[in-house]
Amino acid sequence: MTPSRTRPPFSADERTQLLGWFDMQRAIVHYKCEGLSDEDAHRAVLPSSPLMTMAGIVSHLRWVEHTWFEVLFLGRPAEGPQFVNEPEDADMRAEGIPLAQLLDEYEKQCGVSDEIIAAHGFDEVGRHPDFASGQASLRWMLIHMIEETARHAGHMDAIRELLDGETGYY
């Protein structure tokens, strides 16, 4: 199910506003992929960034959600393609994986992240002893993930326009 692209209320508590902006950016990721063929989702349009495809970004966003909330915050094992040295940017390598599967995996990972966020206070700090960023507060991690998701949603805006001319914010 595609998340709603609704801005949070102008006047609400911190949790409602931060999660509202996070959910909206996640929804924009889905929106930018609507109606896109698998071929186009895997097509590189930026010569200097061959992995910066729609599929690659969705894969990357799935894995950064996992990294920040499961690994760094909860202290779970550092597992996933983002933790391997070779190939570089392994979390963006989505060759042969259908876009629908990538979006489904991303949506499921967002659900896991949402459960973690709901169960903890913003002032709690991460638990992973091997990474300095694992000592950040949940608030810091959430704000970072809003920034990360929004930045890549912006990349998706440009890529989508280059692929087929589709534009639009939300």
Rank of each mutant, 00 (worst) to 15 (best):
M1T: 15
M1K: 14
P8M: 11
A12H: 10
D13W: 10
D13V: 10
G20R: 13
F22R: 14
M24Q: 12
M24S: 09
R26D: 00
R26L: 06
A27Q: 08
V29E: 03
Y31L: 09
K32S: 02
C33D: 05
E34F: 05
E34V: 07
L36E: 02
A41S: 08
R43C: 00
A55K: 07
I57N: 05
H60M: 04
R62I: 02
T67K: 15
W68M: 08
W68C: 03
F69M: 12
E70N: 14
L74A: 09
E79F: 05
P81D: 00
P81H: 02
P81M: 01
F83R: 10
N85S: 14
E86H: 15
P87Y: 02
P87C: 01
A90G: 05
M92Y: 10
R93M: 03
A94G: 03
G96R: 08
G96Y: 09
G96T: 08
P98G: 02
P98Y: 04
L102S: 01
Q109E: 12
V112I: 14
D114G: 12
E115A: 15
A118N: 11
E124H: 09
H128D: 05
P129G: 09
A132Q: 10
I143L: 12
I143Q: 05
T149A: 06
R151Q: 08
H152N: 05
H155I: 00
H155N: 07
M156A: 14
M156H: 11
I159V: 10
L163D: 02
D164K: 06
